[in-house]
């Protein structure tokens, strides 16, 4: 029994008629964390998410929830927002939300009470008696988000949660996701929006061609992928002189009366050595290490394969 992880998928494999969707994929999602499931289109993310939700059946492997094999009883304890999501167009918003909550096992009374809280919070109380077809896409997405989290599940799975939202509502949603983690939930989300991954995720896994190609704590991954590049900003009227071999200038450009240089350190030299070399030739404005963005790592790993 390992209580450290809310969810573990161990060596999960799954084949469809024509191709292998997942090949020995493993992920470990620590308790009360936000976990980013990344990968290009068709990599197998949705398949893995469907297996965790018991919508699809895996061919081999194990999925453990709080250390125990996942079963249909756990479904009430998972909130799932699929990528392909929608609502009954002809049904009223409130009635429909209550119905979906009841399917998750909530009582009608409880569902109504919770819905009132969330509708007030999102300031959409006036939509209760509207039909879904009268709502805009973004409005419908809000209702769907509420329905996903309404029954207070311990595990939340969002597949592309930000698609269809305007920037204001994306921020609203991010705040809610962070609040949910604070309240004790574990969150898995799959997205192509790398900026939101950097902002929200504690851990990530990168799936490509049906396999996990990278996983771990997000800062650790960035450390692992950094390539000793530093950015120096200096007064433009001076010329940067560096010994060849030890350092290589990758980029050098001016922006609004400041010159910038991206410098890679080679041959076991340290940042301190670099600083010593710089200050002799230019007037430094700033100095910082360039860490690779998740976007860069994503593109690098995917093109490697």
């Amino acid at each position: 029994m390992n209580q450290e992880f809310a969810l573990q998928a161990i060596n999960v494999s799954k084949s469809y008629a024509n191709h292998k969707a997942l090949n020995n994929v493993s992920i470990e999602v620590p308790n009360q964390s936000i976990f980013g499931l990344l990968g290009p289109n068709g990599a197998g993310k949705t398949t893995l998410i469907r297996i965790i939700n018991l919508i699809s059946v895996m061919d081999e492997g194990q999925v453990l929830l709080n250390g125990k094999a996942i079963s249909t009883k756990d479904i009430a304890n998972i909130g799932y927002l699929p990528e392909e999501r929608g609502l009954y167009k002809k049904m009223e918003v409130g009635e429909q939300a209550v119905y979906l909550a009841q399917l998750k096992g909530m009582s009608k009374k409880d569902a109504k009470k919770q819905l009132k809280y969330w509708f007030d919070k999102f300031e959409i109380g006036s939509w209760w008696n509207k039909k879904v077809e009268e709502l805009s896409k973004g409005m419908a997405q809000k209702v769907q988000f509420i329905v996903t989290v309404l029954h207070k599940p311990d595990l939340l799975i969002f597949d592309e949660p930000f698609s269809g939202f305007d920037p204001i509502n994306v921020n609203l949603l991010k705040d809610e996701i962070l609040q949910l983690r604070k309240d004790g939930a574990t969150i898995i989300f799959s997205t192509h929006n790398m900026a939101s991954v950097e902002e929200l995720c504690d851990n990530i896994a990168l799936i490509n061609n049906s396999q996990t190609v990278l996983s771990g704590e997000i800062h650790q991954i960035k450390e692992d992928f950094k390539s000793n590049i530093f950015e120096v900003a200096y007064k433009p009227n001076t010329r940067l002189n560096l010994p060849h071999g030890d350092y290589s200038i990758i980029e050098n450009y001016d922006v609004r009366n400041v010159s910038y240089a991206k410098i890679k350190i080679n041959n076991g030299k340290t940042p301190n050595d670099l600083i010593k070399n710089i200050i002799t030739s230019v007037n430094v404005v700033s100095f910082r290490e360039i860490l690779p963005s998740i976007n860069d790592i994503f593109i690098q790993k995917v093109s490697e394969n």
Partner: peptide, 16 residues
């Protein structure tokens, strides 16, 4: 067909 084209079906089969 309505459930499929509305994309509500996956929401529902995550519960039933």
């Amino acid at each position: 067909m309505e459930e499929k084209s509305n994309r509500i079906v996956e929401v529902i089969i995550s519960s039933v």
